[in-house]
Computed example of a mutant assay.
Amino acid sequence: MVQHKRPMTNSGTPGSFDLAIRAFSYCNEAQIRCGVRVTLTKENYHELKDLIDLSLQLGAYRFCVY
């Protein structure tokens, strides 16, 4: 499983980062193309490189920035 120094989520739901990573893994196993969508804000823009790296590590089909 992918590990990250800090969950990058705005959902406010405890454990949502780990659930999203697990779901991504299940989709990959089922050969379902998944992508990562990110809304950049002044609070998280400095994490863009980490987000791209994580997406590559997950095997994301697409990476979208809003």
Rank of each mutant, 00 (worst) to 15 (best):
M8D: 02
M8I: 08
T9C: 07
N10G: 15
N10V: 08
G12Q: 13
G12I: 15
T13E: 07
T13M: 10
T13A: 12
T13Q: 10
P14V: 11
P14L: 12
G15D: 08
G15P: 07
S16L: 07
S16D: 13
F17H: 03
F17G: 00
D18Q: 14
L19V: 09
A20W: 01
A20E: 03
A20P: 05
I21D: 01
I21C: 14
I21V: 15
R22M: 12
A23E: 11
A23V: 11
F24M: 12
F24L: 06
F24S: 04
S25W: 03
C27R: 05
C27S: 09
C27Y: 10
N28S: 13
E29M: 06
E29Q: 11
A30W: 07
A30D: 06
Q31N: 15
Q31I: 13
Q31S: 15
I32G: 06
I32C: 13
I32S: 06
I32P: 07
I32L: 14
I32N: 06
R33Y: 08
R33C: 10
C34K: 02
V36M: 13
V36N: 01
R37S: 14
R37G: 11
R37P: 02
V38K: 00
V38G: 00
V38N: 02
V38P: 00
T39M: 04
L40V: 10
T41I: 09
T41D: 09
K42A: 04
E43C: 04
N44M: 03
Y45I: 10
H46W: 03
E47Y: 15
E47P: 03
L48C: 03
L48G: 00
D50R: 04
L51P: 05
I52C: 14
L54Q: 01
S55P: 04
L56T: 00
Q57Y: 10
L58R: 00
L58C: 06
A60W: 01
A60S: 14
A60G: 12
Y61V: 03
Y61I: 00
R62H: 13
R62G: 06
F63Q: 01
